[in-house]
């Protein structure tokens, strides 16, 4: 359950920019292959944000789907997990999307 560390990292990074201003909405990007579960992050965020200017902030989380590129046959395809096997049989596959863990923006109130 690393989502608490993730939530704390989010709060530290945002308050470094927004300081004491209360935050109403926070936009995050959590890729579907990132290893972070959005539901667990929401739960941990609520706890970690208590007594901070981010308490009660609404989390808007976009979850980019997994995409990969096969270095053998040069094909791009969607992946739902990190079991990366191209239909050509190659496992020499690079993840091109879905591993994002980013803070996009914060709206103060």
């Amino acid at each position: 359950m690393h989502e608490l560390s993730i939530a704390e990292s989010v709060i530290d990074a945002v308050t470094a920019r927004t300081g004491t201003a209360n935050v109403k909405t926070l936009r995050l990007e959590i890729g579907q292959l990132s290893g972070v579960v959005s539901g667990a992050l929401r739960f941990c965020f609520e706890l970690a944000a208590e007594d901070t200017p981010l308490a009660g902030a609404m989390l808007e989380i976009s979850e980019p789907v997994g995409e990969a590129h096969c270095r053998t046959c040069d094909r791009d395809f969607g992946v739902s997990d990190l079991v990366l096997l191209c239909s050509c049989g190659s496992a020499d596959v690079a993840v091109t999307s879905g591993q994002e863990l980013r803070i996009l923006s914060a709206e103060v109130c």
Binding site: V14, A16, R17, G19, L101, L104, A106
Partner: peptide, 23 residues
């Protein structure tokens, strides 16, 4: 006043940074 004290309500701060940037 500290960081953020002068921010107008509704101001959107763009961060565009990795969550694990500090680590």
């Amino acid at each position: 006043a500290g960081i953020g004290a002068g921010l107008e309500p509704g101001t959107v701060i763009t961060l565009e940074e990795k969550i694990l940037a500090k680590n």
